[in-house]
Design a protein around this nucleic acid. Sequence first.
DNA 1: AAATTATTTTAGCCTTGTCTAAATTTCTTT
DNA 2: AAAGAAATTTAGACAAGGCTAAAATAATTT
Lengths: 219, 219
Amino acid sequence: MLSQSIEDYLKAIYEVESSEGKVSTSALSEKLGVSPASVTSMVKKLSERKLITHKRYQGVKLTPAGKKIALEIIRHHRLVELYLKEALGVPWDQVHQEAEKWEHVLSEDLEDRIDKFLGYPVTDPHGSPIPRRDGTMIVRQCNALVDVEPDTLVKVVEVSDHDPELLRYLGGIGLYPETEMTVVSKQPFKGPIIVELTGKEHPIGRNAAKYIMVEKARN
Amino acid sequence: MLSQSIEDYLKAIYEVESSEGKVSTSALSEKLGVSPASVTSMVKKLSERKLITHKRYQGVKLTPAGKKIALEIIRHHRLVELYLKEALGVPWDQVHQEAEKWEHVLSEDLEDRIDKFLGYPVTDPHGSPIPRRDGTMIVRQCNALVDVEPDTLVKVVEVSDHDPELLRYLGGIGLYPETEMTVVSKQPFKGPIIVELTGKEHPIGRNAAKYIMVEKARN
DNA sequence: AAATTATTTTAGCCTTGTCTAAATTTCTTT
DNA sequence: AAAGAAATTTAGACAAGGCTAAAATAATTT
């Protein structure tokens, strides 16, 4: 049995690796809210257990064994997020927080029951793909909203779950995964991006727009 | 925020107090699966925090503050047990094990959602009363099956959840809370108790019969 | 290329919750 | 009531996982 701490580190390493490519001590320190020194010592332990590889002063990388565990935790997390929303009506900006705790206590049996209850879903409430039981996960081709040219019809694929406030705002304007919308304009001087959905125009800050992944809609 | 360990101790103290009256170091050691020395040191900490009172070499007792927390945990535990059975079909001999983990990660919000989903239930799948949100719990008048005289019609009130194997046996013969049955005979020399339900007779060992609480059925 | 700055690691300490072994205290038996 | 047995506490150690301060290395600027 792995400690909750180890599970958190493996998940964080996976996520940093996905979004930034390289996994530095300071990135993990930041992400996990612990000191860099603590990261170094945990990194040493994870290396000894062959869950990651590590070259001093360079980054860290998951071994296949470590990756498998990270994806199991992420699978738990995303299944729980969707379950809480579907079965108990928890709003989408709160599910992440709850799932952070539940992901560590989910038995395989319960995982299967929840999976079945949900009809073997492939994405969570934020549009993130749910890893499969075998430790594989689909990879999608999409762009950040911030990089899309104006006058394009796009479909929302995924929204980062890291900021509840952003999620409440987006929910308020009806922007969810699968929603289609038009990128109307990008205001100059790093101003907001204007999108149109359900007939109304809404501003979305450039920073927020980095966390909204979209694909060109079939038109 | 209290540690999982502290929550486990408070719950154990409450349960031992209920079933044995006095709470000794060794009883807690046994119940929690830790050494007596560990119990002593945790007892010291809980006393300092005014969650229990303790006189050296005599027992331990919950303060009102400690009791409130214990009942909150037990409320979580029992709500989760019932929820897992009702919403996800987890068999009644497995819900206890799962709830042992879930009770520590349940937010107040989720507690309320589950409570509402279940229609504000008053007992868990084993017939144990669910403490109310305000920290009170109903106390029922009932007897252990082992103490009932033969030739009595009784109704099952509650079954201990501590032994999954016993629960599987009882489920197999259709013995659940609310079930009515007749105590046919008590075999001599500490032999089993014979009960009749749904037209069949079944033997129940004296030891098991200590863990089955019943009341006289209205006849 | 040297100096400064930023990142990472080492060293050493702390807290939590556990353990074993030994010392106390209480209980039980004779 | 004294001896032996059982229960409890004390003393001291350990593993996990965190921290700070200082040292080492890498990256950047001048």
